[in-house]
Computed example of a mutant assay.
Amino acid sequence: MADKQYCIQVMTPEQLDLAIDWAAQEGWNPGLYDANSFRCVDPNGFLVGLLDGEPIASISVVKYGDSFGFLGFYIVKPEYRGQGYGLQIWKAGLEYLAGRNIGLDGVEAQQVNYKKSGFKLAYGNIRYEGQGGGNAPAVEGLVDLSDLPFERIDAYDQSFFPAERTEFLKRWIKQEGSYAIGIERDGQLAGYGVIRPCRSGYKVGPLLAENAELAEELFLALKAKAKSSDLVYLDVPEVNKNAVAIAEKYTMTPVFKTARMYTKSFPDLPLDRTFGVTTFELG
């Protein structure tokens, strides 16, 4: 019997949908309509490993700007693990991002392996799970993001991410089934958040605000868009104690953690104003 042929190539849109299905099977609970937002960032940054034409491995290695990249969707189908296929697509992905500072949100169990490839731990993220519903606060300054010029939202967002992500953000805040709101103070945007439907319940992300009080108001307004029977998830940087306190105040419980790691310097990001991560897959 001839050796099977393994090749690595850029994903088709259908293969990205398949990788998102794999992520769901791993318990990562991707959004229902994430693919369009993901693909627009870097269409060449999604790789698939094919064994005799069958997709068996995936990785996303998305380029942002000239010097940053983010790695995600590193999955090998269970029956093909431990046979070297994952390592090959991992190496291909790192080669694609050569010379850049690379970030990832990895499961804690893989930290040791990531360190072997030069990744260093910056901080942990915690995924919290709770119930939707409740009443939206009667807060002055709450505004639907669709009523604001996109340039204002983009300008606010830029300080929270290591590189420009304008095209991604345009699509992310207008995902089907999502709700995106901001909060204004003194005529300036002082925070914004998005809630979107996922395989299970809804996820809030990003949740960005100038202080904990504004973040809590945004969170309650977003959570109120889900039914009380729906699960709601919030991914918070563990180092933001106010974000952790908001999750715990509303009886959310930790369901798993990830390790945010980088290959080079840690970006100087305002984690004290980051109350919810946008997405573990693309940062």
Rank of each mutant, 00 (worst) to 15 (best):
R273P: 01
D21W: 11
R100L: 05
I20E: 08
V41E: 01
D272L: 09
N29W: 02
A2I: 09
T274A: 04
N29V: 08
P30E: 14
R273W: 02
G193D: 04
G99A: 07
D235Q: 09
G53Q: 13
E167V: 12
G193P: 02
G93D: 04
A155P: 08
L148H: 05
M1Q: 15
D42T: 01
K170Y: 11
S159M: 11
V41D: 02
R39S: 10
K174H: 15
I173R: 00
P137T: 03
N242G: 03
A109Q: 15
A226F: 03
Q88T: 15
L16C: 15
L87K: 13
E26N: 13
I183Y: 00
I195Q: 10
L189F: 02
V239G: 09
K203Y: 12
R199V: 13
C7H: 14
A35S: 15
R100A: 07
E167T: 14
K91L: 11
Y33K: 08
V244G: 06
A224M: 06
A163P: 11
L47A: 04
K120E: 09
E167W: 06
I8V: 06
A215K: 00
M11A: 12
S229V: 14
A35L: 10
L269N: 11
G191T: 00
E26R: 15
A190G: 08
L207T: 05
Y85C: 04
N125H: 12
V239S: 10
E167G: 12
E238G: 05
A224L: 12
A180F: 06
N36W: 09
W28R: 01
T279S: 12
S146I: 14
